[in-house]
Every structure is written in structure tokens, then in C-alpha cells.
């Protein structure tokens, strides 16, 4: 078994997938680590991968002119980072800044897509998990936009 497989098999994100499916996904995966202050990617850069965070924290943000970097959302252990690799124009929409030392699994986007195209059952399992994450992320952003803690005057 590869190191990536051993790391992936216990991750809640892959719960419900068969070991064979996880093994195929693991072939596109590489363990990575980052130090506090580093950037994983920058807005506008080529998006060719996604990351499953194992430990640590990553801030997604943008540079506001005159204000410097502003975090919109932070991601932590168990969260998936990045879906720009799935859709054209394959460019990152945000900066990914390491808040605290982080360990993650990096997935090679094109290879993962190839594997999903070759096995639609695997592709469907992966897509279910990505859409679940997308829906939850969107709901969170909507609540943030509602500004529920503001003073009701």
C-alpha cells in the first residue's frame, strides 16, 4: 500500500468508497506540507490540483487594494481545498495562504479527471463528494452575507 492510500483510507471525505476506488485516487495523490506564511497558490495562477487538509489551517483570501490580504474563509483538517481545476478557465479564484503549519494530500487534477472519465462509477462517487462540499461552502457564504450578527435597527 502507498503512503497516500494509508492516509486517505481513514479520511471522512472518502467514507463509503471502496478500497479499490481509494487506491485509484491515491495514485494521483502526494503528501505535502507547508509552513506558516507560505502560499499554496495565488489568484489567477494555473489550477491543476486540489488538496485534502490533514492538519493545520489555510486561509482563502484576496488582495484588497490598499488593505492587503483579506481572508474570506479558513479551511482546516478534513476540508477540501480547490475546485478551479475542475472547470475552465482552470485558474485559481483566490489566494491560499498557510495560517499555521499544514499537512495535506495534493491530488493531480488532470490525472484525477482521467481516472473519473475512465470509471464513471468512481467519477460519480467523487462528484457527490465535491458537490456536497460545494453546497456546504455556498450555504456558509450565504449566512456570512446575511450578516446575522449585525445590530437590528
Amino acid at each position: 500500500m502507498s503512503e497516500a492510500f494509508d492516509l486517505l483510507v481513514d479520511q471522512p471525505f472518502f467514507k463509503g468508497m471502496t478500497e479499490d476506488q481509494i487506491r485509484v485516487v491515491a495514485e494521483t495523490a502526494t503528501p505535502v506540507s507547508y509552513r506558516e506564511g507560505e502560499f499554496i497558490f495565488f489568484e489567477g495562477g494555473k489550477a491543476d490540483s486540489c488538496f485534502l487538509i490533514l492538519d493545520g489551517g489555510v486561509a482563502l483570501g484576496l488582495e484588497k487594494p490598499g488593505h492587503g490580504p483579506t481572508a474570506i474563509l479558513t479551511l482546516h483538517a478534513g476540508d477540501l481545498l480547490g475546485w478551479s481545476w475542475l472547470y475552465p478557465p482552470y485558474r485559481w479564484s483566490y489566494n491560499a495562504h498557510i495560517h499555521v503549519d499544514t499537512k495535506a494530500i495534493r491530488f493531480d487534477g488532470p490525472r484525477l479527471k482521467e481516472a473519473a472519465d475512465a470509471d464513471p462509477v468512481l467519477g460519480y462517487e467523487l462528484m457527490k463528494r465535491f458537490t456536497d462540499m460545494l453546497v456546504k461552502r455556498m450555504q456558509s457564504i450565504r449566512i456570512q452575507l446575511l450578516d446575522v450578527y449585525s445590530t437590528p435597527r
Binding site: G61, H67, T70, A71, T74, H76, I143, Q144, D147
Partner: peptide, 23 residues
Amino acid sequence: ITVDRGDQVWRGPVGVVTSLIGR
């Protein structure tokens, strides 16, 4: 602790409070 909007010095989580439940 999490905040809906971070600032230049905030190093903690940004996002809704439900995002903390998994931690």
C-alpha cells in the same frame, strides 16, 4: 472562535460557527 470577516491581524478561523463543529 471564528469570525465572519477577518482583518489584517486576525490569525484565527474565518467562516460561520457551524464550520467549527467538525473540529
